[in-house]
């Protein structure tokens, strides 16, 4: 029986309403629940089938090359992976960016678009809790996206009988990179997406901003390099969130840089790290500010 306001489904069965005398858990539980629900939403779980296509497709795109590489390396009997763990992240940064662009709006614009915010805000959850949960979920979703192929590479390397310790260290470096990149990108992506309730526009805005930063940073860096301004060229990598994290990794775990110049020396490394932390904290703070202004109606 599935009539809506017609007769039949309006009949209330006389089971009686049971009052709830059980525990009502506190804010920690609420944040965890929202976090879990949002994380699942990033991968389309618990939503319609259509919303699963994009995230899983991207997960496949991220992982397949890793698997293929590992298999090839094994078959050819290579000593080390053709592309190391951290470099893999940056080779596939487009896919990571697309995932962010597609799923950040799904995480935050959705509640704005469908005006679900009043339902959240009329519950014990505070606005800051909401932001924390969403930020955590998006970061975790990105982390999973990057960590899975990293782990596939690691397992593949081990199966191909490569040396354990170098690969373990590389894998750890890769996970560190995954962690930092997730935090940086989530902050920026969620901030941009939360500005508009329209999902399509949110997607386009995130991609446009990230691409713009990539291009500008690349052009400026190349320009200064050609004009013998090596240090300046290195510092222009700060403009692009992806190369920002790459810079930090170059300094901390000796990753390879895809920019003409790596961050110069210790000062460079510190500057990059400081800017990265600033970006994370800043975008979180702006996101919280944005949600303080969100109407409760």
């Amino acid at each position: 029986m599935s009539s809506d306001s017609g007769a039949g489904s309006g009949v209330i069965h006389d089971i009686g309403f049971r009052h709830y005398e059980g525990p009502r858990l506190g804010r920690g539980y609420l944040i965890r629940s929202l976090y879990a629900d949002s994380l699942r939403g990033c991968y389309g779980l618990g939503r319609s089938t259509k919303s699963k296509i994009m995230p899983f497709l991207l997960l496949l795109v991220m992982t397949a090359p890793a698997v293929i590489m590992a298999v090839v390396a094994g078959v050819l009997g290579l000593d080390e992976l053709p592309l190391d763990y951290v470099s893999y992240i940056f080779a596939l940064s487009s896919a990571i960016t697309i995932f962010l662009a597609a799923q950040a709006p799904a995480t935050v614009s959705r509640d704005l678009r469908f005006r679900t915010m009043p339902l959240y805000l009329s519950r014990p959850l505070t606005r800051n809790d909401y932001v924390l949960a969403k930020y955590g979920a998006m970061s975790t979703a990105l982390f999973i996206l990057i960590a899975v192929p990293q782990t596939a590479l690691f397992i593949g390397a081990l199966l191909a009988k490569m040396e354990f310790w170098p690969n373990a260290k590389g894998w750890a470096a890769g996970l560190l990179g995954a962690f930092l990149l997730s935090l940086v990108l989530s902050g920026i992506g969620l901030l941009i997406a939360s500005i508009t309730p329209r999902r399509g526009f949110g997607v386009a805005a995130v991609i446009t901003v990230l691409l713009l930063l990539t291009l500008v940073s690349g052009v400026l860096s190349a320009l200064s390099y050609e004009n013998d301004q090596a240090a300046l060229s290195a510092y222009f990598a700060l403009l692009n969130p992806v190369s920002l994290v790459q810079g930090v990794l170059v300094w901390t775990v000796n990753a390879e840089s895809t920019y003409p110049e790596p961050p110069p020396g210790t000062l460079g490394g510190l500057v990059f790290t400081a800017v990265m932390l600033l970006v994370i904290a800043g975008s979180y703070a702006l996101l919280a500010a944005r949600y303080r202004k969100v109407s409760a109606s």
């Binding site: 994009m54 662009a101 597609a102 399509g200 526009f201 997607v203 386009a204 991609i207």
Partner: peptide, 8 residues
């Protein structure tokens, strides 16, 4: 409805 994502 997913024009933007497909276009991207």
């Amino acid at each position: 409805r997913n024009a933007v994502v497909i276009g991207l």
